[in-house]
Design a protein around this nucleic acid. Structure first.
Lengths: 121, 121
DNA sequence: ATCGTTGTCAACCGATTGGTTGAAGAAGGG
DNA sequence: CCCTTCTTCAACCAATCGGTTGACAACGAT
């Protein structure tokens, strides 16, 4: 699957607070759908659907262990997301810095004309 | 607004490829809605809606400059998202490491009993 | 004061989403 | 083989979403 589609699904998956909570719990330990569903007061099937959404987003995988299907958090999908976000966060912050430099340089020009105080903290 | 609600909206906002593209372009430079809308073949109003979604997610702010309303990417919202993701990514990776250690220690025990071949590749 | 530019609001449409309930599939244990 | 356990599939419902078009609000220019 393309990264774009994967990002679509991953971001959409984490847009739901229940699913974010599932991810938080799966970070601590793998769990079956049944175990995951227990704390919530929605139907078991609703949680099964949530897990399916996480799975289709690549955020979790499942193995088979007899009747149980333990759900396992996939760190790589999280990497894909932070990778995307960080790229643009860095870009915009670099832009802020350039603006700051520009302002500092303008202030520096002022200093050139009034060559006394330096590094106005 | 609560962080939970903000995360809901931020993740939902980035779940749309058009909105991710807007963010990518805003990382390079601020832009007006009109400038943002130009490359896409959807209606101007559709992009206006997308920008509104980004704004309500805290991902973007707008200032007023005469008739123009330049849109500006907000790095802090991106930080909030990576902060959330990274927390659980680190947690699950720490868990992997513990598991690896455990397996390595088990392998070490094997070595104790059959102290000959090492690293069966 | 009117005009063009820039942008939002409102109403509507089809598709998707998160939830429900009910039935069915898959894999041991008796 | 049947029974129980864990899990998914199917159908349905209300709500939300991304898109459209049309009207309107805000501001500068003429």
């Amino acid at each position: 699957m393309g990264d774009t589609q994967l990002l679509d699904r991953a971001f959409a998956a984490l847009a739901d607070p229940t699913r974010r909570d599932l991810v938080a719990r799966l970070a601590v330990a793998d769990a079956t759908v049944g175990e995951l569903a227990e704390p919530y007061d929605v139907s078991f099937q609703a949680i099964s659907k949530h897990v399916k959404v996480l799975e289709e987003a690549g955020l979790v995988t499942r193995s088979r262990d007899a009747q149980r299907r333990p759900v396992h958090l996939n760190a790589e999908a999280l990497d894909l997301m932070t990778g995307w976000i960080e790229r643009y966060r860095r870009e915009v912050e670099a832009r802020y810095r350039r603006l700051d430099d520009l302002l500092a340089r303008a202030a520096g020009d002022d200093e050139d004309r009034r060559p006394d105080k330096e590094q106005a903290s």
